[in-house]
Design a protein around this nucleic acid. Structure first.
Length: 560
RNA sequence: UGGGGCGUCGUCUAAGGGUAGGACGUCAGACUUUGAAUCUGAUUAUCAAGGUUCGAAUCCUUGCGCCCCAGCCA
């Protein structure tokens, strides 16, 4: 928001900290994804917040791969995460992995045992769960809770040495089994996992859990403001407990603090990594970078720009209020970016043949069209014009309703940048479908100008010689505003069956056949399109529709 | 029915004792060689009830509603 004086609540905290001299005025944030999936638009919010804050306050922001669970994490994901952050336009100060700290974390754990504040528990997972109690019943102390420091140290070292199978024992923090906050009922901080880790290989068979690893990693890196999402709110006391008992100087304020904000939710989509993965695994979509996915890669391949994603994160703000933003806001962000930056072009998605009966056969002329109506410096291009052309099927109606500005029998319209044409006759096939229009053009209106009369409609067009291109029309993946709202039904029941339409027979102006992969265009009167880098071939591009233009005619019809 | 959070236009988000502002959406109009863009204008909100105060979205009390927590996931 450009309110100016309206700081978001994190900025307010930082400015207050700077005023009081907390952290010696330092700002050091971090973006800590777990490398177990691809980044999505929700991460983009966290990324631009953390990197943006560091930039705004002259601080630093680290990228830290939170890789404490060897069974779910893969190198493939750490590479994609880095690529996506760079594409978004951010550069990290330090690149770290939680696994960099396994040695230090282990030492912290031994220290906790020495302080008598952690113990090795032999209870099995189900037993731990039973002994923990529930929201209304306090937990009970584990029978192993009062082992001596020596015994705990010995057992913990043997856990590390690989003497016990997975699940046999855990290291637990000794806090309070009767706490009303279940997170303080002696949370597990180390578990046994005889699993290969993507970076440390087989060096470890015990791995720290999030609550233990995350806060201490923050402390090790000198993070000042550790921003996470709302669901971590009731773990903050645990965060504080661990940091305060283990980090030297923590009590004096020389430590990181956790702040929670609302995650980004958007209408007509799901955001959890688990659900996105399910869409990929069940082939509902064609991979993590399917243009319908709200992953960074998917959005990128759909034709969203990094600037538009950054813009969205600015507009949605930062609050603690659980919210769901209108996906239309994202669409508006990319429209605004592409309206000023995308060159214009003409493409006919569903061609309808037009023959200009009074235009000489065999004649062709090159007509100049502006590449951008508001930016003459972007120049013009030549588009061939001839006796046979294509216009959009939607742009003709034999019996038009009131308010239809386009072509119909006896009506004159302008072909953009070319001539006025009038429809004289309609040719139909045996089934009565309109297959061709016989029209006349007015040579005096070259360039689309006439001094003596006006026309209501201006249509885009391509010459009959125009190359064919595949165009993919994408729409939102789900038909329901909140696909997860109905507890009784799976989110996949709300998929939009029309989220992808492939048009193999679109015709594009010649320039577009040479479009470089990853280039953006506005196809006039239709929307913004992006040359797909994966599907397209040289001279044979595939265009993904990023978003339509706003269309008040569609709205008008909807009212009828 | 334990604990932790959150309630402001349709959707988001500002204002933190002194004119409830902005964005997106919607509606109406102007302009238009994109039914786009642009420009005008309009509509609509402080969860409820009490209290304090000259004055409450803001402070207090009591309700109500929604979200999160009982992984050896993060």
């Amino acid at each position: 928001m450009e309110a100016g004086q309206g700081l978001n609540f994190i900025q307010a905290i930082i400015e207050e900290d700077q005023r009081t001299g907390k952290h010696s005025g330092r700002v050091h944030t971090r973006f800590p994804p777990e490398p177990n999936g691809y980044l999505h638009i929700g991460h983009a919010k966290a990324i631009s917040l953390n990197f943006g804050l560091a930039h705004q306050y002259g601080g630093k922001c680290n990228l830290r791969l939170d890789d404490t669970n060897p069974t779910t994490e893969e190198t493939e994901y750490v590479e994609s995460i880095q690529e996506d952050i760079r594409w978004l336009g951010y550069t990290w100060d330090g690149l770290y992995y939680a696994s960099d700290y396994f040695g230090q974390l282990y030492q912290f754990a031994e220290e906790l045992i020495r302080q008598g504040k952690a113990y090795v528990d032999d209870l099995k997972p189900e037993e731990i769960s039973q002994w923990r109690g529930d929201f209304t019943t306090p937990g009970r102390d584990s029978p192993f809770r009062n082992r001596s420091v020596e015994e705990n140290l010995d057992l913990f070292r043997r856990m590390r040495a690989g003497e016990f199978p997975d699940g046999a024992r855990t290291l637990r923090a000794k806090i309070d089994m009767r706490s009303p906050n279940p997170n303080l009922r002696d949370p597990a901080i180390y578990r046994i996992r005889h699993a290969h880790h993507h970076r440390t290989g087989d060096a470890w068979c015990i791995y720290p859990l999030y609550d233990f690893a995350h806060c201490l990693s923050d402390a090790i890196e000198g993070i000042t403001h550790s921003i996470c999402t709302l669901e971590f709110e009731n773990r903050r006391v645990l965060y504080d407990w661990i940091v305060d008992t283990l980090v030297p100087g923590a009590k004096e304020g020389n430590r990181p603090y956790q702040y929670e904000m609302a995650r980004l939710n958007l209408t007509y989509t799901v955001m959890s990594k688990r659900k996105l993965k399910e869409l990929v695994d069940t082939k509902v979509v064609d991979g993590w970078d399917d243009p319908r996915m709200l992953t960074i890669r998917g959005l990128r391949r759909r034709g969203f720009t990094a600037a538009s994603l950054r813009d969205l994160t600015q507009r949605v703000g930062v609050t603690k209020t659980q919210s769901r933003h209108d996906i239309g806001l994202l669409e508006q962000c990319v429209r605004e970016d592409l309206d000023t930056n995308a060159p214009r072009a003409m493409a006919v998605l569903r061609p309808l043949k037009v023959v200009l009966e009074n235009y000489p056969e065999g004649q062709t002329e090159e007509l100049p069209l502006a590449n951008h109506p508001k930016r003459p410096e972007l120049g013009t291009r030549q588009v061939p014009f001839m006796r046979e052309l294509y216009i959009e099927q939607d742009d003709f109606m034999e019996n038009p309703p009131k308010g239809f500005y386009r072509l119909s029998p006896g009506v004159e319209v302008r072909l953009r940048g070319a001539y006025f044409i009038r429809c004289e006759r309609v040719i139909k096939d045996a089934d009565g479908r309109v297959v061709e229009l016989r029209c006349t053009y007015d040579p005096a209106t070259r360039g689309g100008n006439a001094t003596d009369r006006k026309v209501k409609g201006t249509l885009h067009w391509v010459p009959a010689s125009a190359p064919v291109a595949e165009v993919r029309l994408y729409d939102r993946l789900f038909a329901a505003e909140d696909p997860e709202a109905d507890e009784a039904r799976a989110f996949k029941e709300f998929l939009n069956p029309d989220s992808l339409e492939v048009l193999a027979g679109a015709r594009v102006e010649p320039m577009l056949a040479q479009a470089a992969p990853e280039s953006h265009f506005q196809f006039e009167r239709l929307g913004y399109f992006y040359a797909d880098p994966k599907k397209g071939l040289p001279g044979r591009p595939v265009f993904n529709r990023t978003v339509t233009l706003k269309d008040s005619w569609v709205r008008e019809q909807g009212k009828a």
